[in-house]
Design a protein around this nucleic acid. Sequence first.
DNA 1: TGACTGTACTATAAGTAATAATACAGTTAA
DNA 2: TTAACTGTATTATTACTTATAGTACAGTCA
Lengths: 128, 128
Amino acid sequence: MFQLDRQGNKPLYEQIKEKMKALIINGALKPDERLPSVRELAQTLTINPNTIQKAYKELETEGFIYSIRAKGNFVAPLEQKIIRPRRDELKNELEKIVAELIYLHEPQEQLIATIQAIYKEKEEKKDD
Amino acid sequence: MFQLDRQGNKPLYEQIKEKMKALIINGALKPDERLPSVRELAQTLTINPNTIQKAYKELETEGFIYSIRAKGNFVAPLEQKIIRPRRDELKNELEKIVAELIYLHEPQEQLIATIQAIYKEKEEKKDD
DNA sequence: TGACTGTACTATAAGTAATAATACAGTTAA
DNA sequence: TTAACTGTATTATTACTTATAGTACAGTCA
């Protein structure tokens, strides 16, 4: 499914969160699709089940997945009420990055071309 | 100069790094301008000088400031050889954010308008 | 029934973050 | 030259975080 970096950079549970989020966002995991169980994924990645549990728990509070006791963890369909605040957060992070790119003299046209390329790529790969 | 959030969110030294970076990036601190001394800033923020020192040290290894022993820490002028790798890092982070914005159905035109607005704002405020 | 699920709890070890107190050596202005 | 400032380094201590380990409980389901 994915691999982790053990060289003490980021905490393992943070890495798991990021990887899972990426799979959900790029559509590799569909809404209501089941995630690997905590024990299963722990064995695959050879880490402790508690670490997976921590990652899943935070993904749930952030609205990316939901969990059903004794059945599993599942990809949460997009909820309208989550969109607005999350979009605002993302735009805030975006502004910092763009500000630094401007500081590095990134031309406006070039950055916009980059954005358009990302949209085009996602448009082509979407199959949901 | 700025304030810190003591409610255990992010480490203090990380917050200091971010705030200083922001001041450098938006031009509030000019190249070769002197930063507050570690003891001075520590007193202002009522935190430990070692915490400031840690932040400054990392800002130096990241190329944002340089330090002269017994004189102070200073804003580093932009170095050509730093630009390329840093720009690549930023574009990488940018791609993750844009991917999530697309997941949240942000229209391409709207995102581009946001980017243009940021450029316009920075253009107006630039006085270096 | 048996094997799977999520969840909870306790304990332990290692690492990180922050504070505190000193110390040393170079700069600079009075 | 002195006094007050600079960055830097070191050691110690405390609290928190990260990760592991083991165990347990209750619900699901073939």
